[in-house]
Design a protein around this nucleic acid. Structure first.
Lengths: 82, 82, 82, 82
DNA sequence: TCAGATAAAATCGCGC
DNA sequence: GCGCGATTTTATCTGA
């Protein structure tokens, strides 16, 4: 039911689009907030470019740590073959 | 005060980085949520590619309306050259 | 052959760089020409800011038309699922 | 003459816009060509990122040379106060 | 000098 | 599972 003559459930599609647009807007807002923080940092004398590098570096390190943790889990699972 | 021997206020920098990383994580979470919605839509038979196009198109329409409004402002400002 | 001791074909690299620099210069020249046109327009009483907005708006309209065409293609492809 | 009731010479404005759009398109074409060259270079084993660095470096050097030439002209003009 | 646009690189999901 | 294509993010560049 609820399908038009074209075989597409418009209401359902609309609902999906609404949800997506709402979240996209939130995402965009946060993006703006992040830009503001960089601007604020620049205002106190920090170079945003460098801060970006630092953040990127730490993200890499974090993902490396996550990977190692996952590997550890794998090993633990492997030796617990009871 | 609070500056190390290298002339950088480490505590302040740390604070900026913390704030940024926190928001980046939120942003990333929302991005994942959006992806989930697309996946859900696919699960109910919608083509994500088309939904993306619809969303993109609507965004463009909005931005065009904004541009037109900005344009109107410019015109109004231009004719009020007193 | 033609590779130096560092394993880099310098002549070939030079050729690429020459071509790029030549085109960059052309591009830069055109950019200057465009600026000249704006200056000329200002000289005859037009506000460059408004002209820029008009140009931007027309570009957006074109890209929106393109998007709509792409969208139509998607729809057509979607209903031809034989 | 040729001015509408709004005091704007539409034909002249149109002419400016046409000229600008034409040159913008040329500029865009050249930009695409440059991208193609980078792609071609990559195809023969060069790293585009490095090439970009080289090009940027040479441009800096060129502008530095230009600056020095301008300075020289200034000096020459200064001592030719006849 | 800085914001905004533009383009390149990295990332991620999808299909084979 | 991997390559391809699309999207997102980063960096460069131009104009105000």
């Amino acid at each position: 039911m609820n399908e038009g003559h074209n075989g597409v459930n418009g209401a359902q599609l609309q609902a999906f689009i609404d949800r997506i647009e709402k979240m996209e807007e939130e995402k965009s807002t946060i993006g703006a907030d992040i830009r503001d923080i960089y601007a604020e940092a620049r205002g106190t004398g920090f170079d945003p470019k460098i801060i970006r590098k630092v953040v990127a570096l730490r993200k890499q390190e974090k993902s490396k740590r996550d990977e190692e943790a996952a590997m550890l889990d794998l090993y633990l699972a492997a030796i617990s073959n009871d």
